[in-house]
Design a binder for these strands. Structure first.
Lengths: 191, 191
DNA sequence: GCCCAACGACTGCTTGAGCAAATATAACCG
DNA sequence: CGGTTATATTTGCTCAAGCAGTCGTTGGGC
């Protein structure tokens, strides 16, 4: 193995100890691994709980974003902008959720090209059934794992990384600081 | 973000300020949002760079894990245990990468059920072309965004969350330990 | 040695997602 | 008004991934 890593991996000066034995053990990779594994672990926990209520992570994100928007509705495009989905992805998620009775489409009076996705009463009920458990999961596996100072430090660091790296902070994201409960592990999507 | 808090979501007492105007702005949800958006943002940046070298994120993970294993190889099952993939997912990724000349399959001499995925010379070259830029991306968008103290605090928090939430070892984590000394900190597996 | 449960890899099927093209509408410009 | 361009959504196609089932292999109990 050593014959492959002896040459040209750049040694920049860094915040960490310089003596690296193996390029693949580079602390930077380990750092990314921590973030990604924390994400994967939380996603798995959340998905398990959401599944108990018949929701996927994407569906939960969709219904949550709709539910906190005026009139419990958003135009399809705005919904796509707020989620990790493309517009065609939104079309299909809304298809499924409409079939399941959680959402409805409503024509936009001003612009006949647009249509709203609206949360139905059943959808709101489903969300209300799901949300308390979801919050408990967050508490249990994430925020409750750290004392307030450590949590604040973690969130502060995450915020800075997010602000730097997040590609299209998209519509209203600063204010809303949306939850992307979403499985988009791959994440590199449109744009 | 105003008036949509009418539905009754439980108010538990917590580490954060109690005066919440809207259940969907709950700080716990915001915290998760930060983590997930940081992950999504980094994923997008990384994928863009990996794509320049003709690799997907999954392929990069596969080739990296193989490359840091003894003999640049792993049995299919162990590879699945180390990545976020199922065994059938590994079969297909290795199919593609074998077709592209980055990997080969090699029969396992001891156990004729098993086969190894081995990185080819072309695969190692591809990895060596890709890795420096990848490390720069990590530096640029993640570790370089924070001073050493803040970074350490972030990683410490992430480690605790990861240790708590990471879906516990299905296959692999114990078994592979002999070959695994190098990978101690990245214990990715699927749920 | 023989049987059977466990294991490792692969395959068929389904699902969810993105891209690009298609469709319908809007807006603008002359 | 007529034409051109831009926007909103949907649809066709493709692809990656998981699950469940298959097939060959292994190893333990007898």
């Amino acid at each position: 193995m050593s014959k492959y890593n002896r040459n040209n991996i750049p040694r920049v000066k860094h915040w960490y100890d310089e003596r690296v034995t193996n390029v693949f053990d580079d602390p930077r990779i380990t750092a990314v691994g921590l973030l990604f594994e924390a994400h994967a672990g939380l996603s798995a926990r959340f998905n398990a709980q959401l599944e108990e209520h018949g929701l996927s992570a994407v569906e939960f994100e969709v219904i949550t974003r709709l539910a906190r928007s005026p009139g419990n509705q958003l135009r399809m495009t705005d919904l796509a902008a707020q989620t990790s989905l493309s517009t065609s992805g939104v079309t299909r998620v809304v298809d499924r959720m409409e079939r399941d009775g959680l959402l409805t489409r409503r024509a936009c009076p001003n612009d006949r090209r647009s249509s709203y996705a609206v949360v139905t009463a059943a959808g709101m009920q489903r969300l209300n059934e799901t949300l308390p458990g979801h919050l408990q999961m967050i508490e249990q596996w994430f925020t409750g794992q750290l004392d307030p100072g450590a949590l604040a430090a973690l969130l502060d660091g995450l915020r800075r990384v997010r602000d730097a790296a997040h590609p299209c902070a998209t519509a209203g994201s600063d204010d809303v600081s949306p939850e992307q409960v979403a499985a988009t592990d791959n994440a590199t999507r449109r744009h």
